[in-house]
Amino acid sequence: MPEHVATLQLTGAAVLTLVGVAWAIVVVRLLRRFRKEALRELPAARLPFLPPQRQGGPAWEKVELTPAEQDAFAGLIRRLGDH
C-alpha cells in the first residue's frame, strides 16, 4: 500500500470500482434481455416532424435542340474527342 494514500481512500476507491463493475454487469444484462424487443419496435419508429418522401424520382426533362445547336454540339464532341 502506498504511503501517501490513506486506508479510507484506498477502501473508497475499491468500493467505487466494485460498484462500477456491478453496474456495468447489470446494464449489459438488461440490454441483452430487451434487445429483441427493441429490434422489433425499431422499424415501426417514425419521425412525424419530417415531411413525407416522394416514392419516385424526378420526371425526365427533355429539350429539343435546333439543327444549328445539334451541329454545334457535334462539333464540340469532335473537338473534345481529339484531345
Results as ranks from 00 to 15, higher is better:
P2L: 04
P2H: 02
E3Q: 14
E3S: 10
H4S: 04
A6N: 00
A6M: 01
A6E: 01
T7I: 05
L8T: 14
L8G: 12
L8D: 14
Q9A: 09
L10D: 13
T11L: 07
G12Y: 06
A13D: 13
A13V: 11
V15H: 06
L16H: 11
L18W: 01
V19Q: 08
G20K: 02
V21E: 03
V21G: 03
A22K: 03
W23R: 03
V26L: 13
V26I: 12
V27R: 15
V28I: 02
L31K: 12
L31N: 15
R32Q: 14
R32Y: 13
R33D: 10
F34C: 03
R35G: 05
R35F: 08
K36A: 10
K36S: 05
E37G: 15
E37T: 10
E37P: 07
L39C: 00
L39T: 00
P43L: 01
A44R: 09
A44Y: 11
A45Q: 12
R46E: 08
F49V: 11
L50M: 09
P51T: 14
Q53K: 03
R54D: 06
A59P: 02
W60M: 11
E61A: 14
E61D: 13
V63H: 08
V63N: 04
E64W: 03
L65Q: 07
L65C: 07
T66P: 01
T66F: 00
T66I: 01
P67S: 08
P67E: 11
A68K: 12
A68E: 14
A68D: 13
A68F: 07
E69M: 12
E69H: 12
Q70Y: 07
Q70C: 10
D71N: 11
A72S: 08
A72D: 09
A72K: 11
F73V: 14
G75K: 15
G75T: 12
R78T: 09
R78C: 05
R79V: 11
R79Y: 10
L80V: 08
L80E: 10
L80G: 05
L80S: 01
D82P: 02
H83T: 14
